[in-house]
Design a protein around this nucleic acid. Structure first.
Lengths: 207, 207
DNA sequence: TAGATTGTTAATCGATTAACAATC
DNA sequence: TAGATTGTTAATCGATTAACAATC
């Protein structure tokens, strides 16, 4: 399979979510036209995206909702049911720990870490907060695949280094810095200030 | 000025943040080379991005950190000091209410809304949670520019409709749906499942 | 069958990279 | 001045859109 663009990968979760909603509404079959209408994406774009992974539709009919849902889940690797840990149980870390949509995507929240003794020992969403000193040890014991970094910026690089050393598979970073990690490490930066700044840009040009 | 690409706008907040860090380190001047090194963006890209808004650098020297910082702030419209309100004070809404980086970007948090009587009346980060029934009235009274939607998906469209009717300027949406709003309304969807799903995609292909 | 809709190829559009003259 | 670095034009690369044959 040739390299798939990031833009395509980014749209797959949207397709998946829309298929779920369609299924909840009782639809068995959906066309690229209808998917596009719901997401404000052109049908051509959707067909192109899907076609880069195989032939999922039936000409003259459309896509079978349940089948396509399963296919996209599998393409995204969601059926691996990755084990996740959150490092930094402040406001954002706690909010993510309580966020059910990750669970419904198939992820498991298996550990929480903080260094504040006032927070260590608390239970959030049925998971106990552990001392971050045990991070490397617990990554191995619990077979943690994904580390979510929600510590303040100045501590983020250190946490990332430790996760890399503990052979985590991927990092989802909410700290406002671009961390240095080996090229082989997958890291996604979730940068909330980008969206908000972009909104500011657009509304200030409007009037 | 001709239309600037979204990719360029998305990089400006990164430049801004890096300039701040450089300034904290005592740097007065920075080159596109050095900015690029810190952000893992090519210097050509950075010069191109900046050049689409004017000439901010000095040939043979680089960019004056403080000057460029102010210019980018102004381009992004951050010196408007927009008033923001959060609708939906669950885990995520509370976390955002406590998030100081928005304040440091120049935004003001002026109101919080929820419909749960158990939450209305609480104070978060010095702001009192009000009844969402008063939303439209308060948007006008407090001159709220940006509405942040952190309600569950099934209520998001209704909240958006009401914000639009109350003549809000922009919407920052965390609910996992693509809402229908007038073309003139600026809306940014902050879709956490995209980043996480993309990470899953990449790590499942790795081995 | 006739109508609908996919999958794919070709055309267009847009963004990034390379190159280099201008100039501090 | 010589060296460094910007701003800009041209070349390349990649993604989206358009068109349509294939086929259910």
């Amino acid at each position: 399979m040739k390299d798939i663009s990031k833009a395509t990968i980014d749209r797959l979760p949207l397709y998946l979510r829309t298929l779920r909603m369609a299924q909840d509404e009782g639809l068995d079959v959906i066309s690229s036209e209808e998917l596009g209408r719901r997401l404000e994406i052109t049908p051509e774009q959707i067909r192109k995206d899907l076609a880069s992974f195989g032939q999922f539709g039936k000409k003259g009919v459309g896509y079978y909702v349940n089948e396509l849902k399963k296919s996209i889940s599998s393409i995204l690797g969601l059926d691996n049911h990755w084990n996740m840990a959150i490092v930094g149980i402040g406001h954002l870390g706690s909010a993510l720990a309580n966020h059910h949509s990750f669970i419904s995507l198939g992820f498991n929240l298996v550990a929480l870490f903080d260094h504040d003794p006032a927070i260590v020992g608390k239970t959030i969403n049925h998971v106990k907060v552990e001392d971050v000193a045990d991070l490397e040890k617990r990554v191995k014991e619990l077979n943690i695949h994904i580390g979510i970094i929600t510590v303040p910026g100045q501590f983020a690089q250190d946490v990332a280094d430790r996760l890399v050393k503990a052979k985590i598979r991927g990092i989802w970073n909410f700290a406002p810095i671009r961390m240095k990690v080996p090229d082989t490490m997958h890291i996604v930066n979730e940068d909330l200030s980008i969206g908000l700044s972009g909104l500011s840009y657009h509304i200030s040009r409007k009037f």
